[in-house]
Structure formats: structure tokens, C-alpha cells
């Protein structure tokens, strides 16, 4: 019970700080909307073309938005010298990881919740279905699970803005491909059973990388 209280304390601290500055949410949201609008202009109004490219556009947008967002996950700690204060607290390193991961997940879901209706409006596609929401949530969990770990790794490097995507994108390729396929199937009116294989891959990815990140994070943050 106390374990979860400590995790929620870390998440609470990050959320309060973000709500006060809106440093991540506002900038990443603007980026997300700009990318959606640019793609909308680029592909014109031909609905057949839009149906074809929409899943790719959606996930390219969310992937780069995720990179931008996760780049900032440990920056406040690093810039203000608070990471050592956090490490001196009587909690396991995993508490810090899960707390920060949940905060990043919350920020990403807020951005996606705002971006999806706008995407639906501009592309005239039914992306506000339960299927797409499930795909989005599961994929975002995978993103932040891996991204939080790599963000902790990159924060101590000089070129952290470059390092994170270089480390992050190759690892999340399986989940992006599965999300694009699942989204395409859902937009084409596919059933849950047709989505099952893609969703299973995403869910397995989430579980594997949650466990791996959980185990590896203490070494990443201490060295």
C-alpha cells in the first residue's frame, strides 16, 4: 500500500509542476496539432487516400509527440539538481520509475484525448471509436514504458534531444507497426477478433518492456 502511495506522490509532484507550467502538454499539443494540419493539407480531400494514410499519419504524429514529451521527463530533476534528492529518499528506484512513468502516461493521454477529435474532424474519419481508444491507450503505455527508461538514460548525456529518439524509435518499431495495422483494421470497420493479433502484440510488448524497464531502471539511474 505504501509502495503505491510513494508512486502516487512522485506522480502528484510531476503533475502539479506540469499543471503550473504546462511546459510539456502545451508545447507537445501544439506540435501534434501542427503535424495533423500539415498532413491534412498534404494529402488533400480525397477520402480514399485519407483512409489509406490516416493510420500512418496518426501514429507518426503520436510517436514524435511522445519523443518530445518523454525528452522532458527527467529534465526538471536534472536542471534543478533534484534527481539526487529523489534518489536519497527512502524508496526503491522502481518507485521513481513507475511514478514518473505514470505522470508521462497521463500527459500523453491528455494530448491524445485532445488531438483525436481534431484528427477525426480534419480527416473525416471515425477515430473516436472504442477500438481506436483501446489501441491508443495500449500503445501509449508501451511508449511511455520504454520512453521513461530511455529518458533517464539520455538525461545525463549532452545531446539528450538526439539520443532519446535514436535509442527509443528502433525499440518501439514493433508496437508502432502493430498500432498502424490495428488502427487501419478498426477504421475499415474490422471486428475485435480481426484486431486481436495486433492488440496481443501490443499488450505483450507492454508487459515485457514494463518488466524489463522496472528491472533495468535502478542501474540506469545510478550510473
Amino acid at each position: 500500500m505504501k509502495y503505491w502511495q510513494k508512486i502516487m506522490t512522485v506522480t502528484w509532484k510531476d503533475t502539479i509542476a506540469e499543471m503550473r507550467t504546462r511546459e510539456i502538454i502545451s508545447s507537445v499539443l501544439v506540435f501534434t496539432l501542427l503535424v495533423i494540419v500539415i498532413f491534412n493539407f498534404a494529402f488533400g480531400t480525397n477520402q480514399t487516400t485519407l483512409n489509406l494514410v490516416a493510420p500512418g499519419i496518426l501514429w507518426v504524429t503520436f510517436t514524435f509527440a511522445g519523443v518530445l514529451s518523454l525528452n522532458r521527463a527527467f529534465v526538471p530533476e536534472k536542471e534543478q539538481g533534484c534527481l539526487e534528492g529523489l534518489m536519497a529518499c527512502p524508496v526503491s528506484r522502481e518507485v521513481i520509475y513507475v511514478g514518473k512513468m505514470l505522470a508521462s502516461l497521463l500527459f500523453m493521454l491528455i494530448i491524445e484525448a485532445i488531438a483525436l477529435p481534431i484528427f477525426a474532424f480534419l480527416f473525416n474519419l471515425p477515430v473516436l471509436s472504442l477500438q481506436i481508444i483501446v489501441i491508443t491507450v495500449l500503445t501509449t503505455i508501451g511508449f511511455v514504458t520504454v520512453g521513461t527508461l530511455f529518458s533517464a538514460l539520455a538525461v545525463n548525456t549532452k545531446a539528450r534531444e538526439m539520443i532519446l529518439p535514436i535509442l527509443f524509435l528502433p525499440v518501439v518499431i514493433p508496437i508502432i507497426i502493430s498500432a498502424v495495422l490495428a488502427t487501419g483494421t478498426a477504421l475499415a470497420g474490422g471486428s475485435w477478433s480481426e484486431l486481436a493479433s495486433s492488440l496481443q502484440i501490443i499488450a505483450v510488448f507492454d508487459v515485457i518492456f514494463l518488466v524489463v524497464s522496472f528491472l533495468v531502471f535502478p542501474y540506469v539511474i545510478e550510473e
Binding site: 509532484k13 526538471p76 533534484c82 529518499c89 524508496v91
Partner: peptide, 25 residues
């Protein structure tokens, strides 16, 4: 521990900073 780094978050108030560490301890 007191060092030349304060371990305080600039975007949080004094109360929120102390509340955060009090909860952690």
C-alpha cells in the same frame, strides 16, 4: 542531507516541496 544543491523544485511552492519530501519520508 544538505548540499550546495537544494533538491527543491522551482515550479512548486515551498509548502508543496516540503509536502512532497514529507510524504516520501
Amino acid at each position: 542531507i544538505v548540499t550546495h544543491q537544494t533538491f527543491l523544485y522551482g515550479n512548486l511552492t515551498a509548502r508543496e516541496n516540503l509536502e512532497f519530501y514529507a510524504r516520501m519520508y
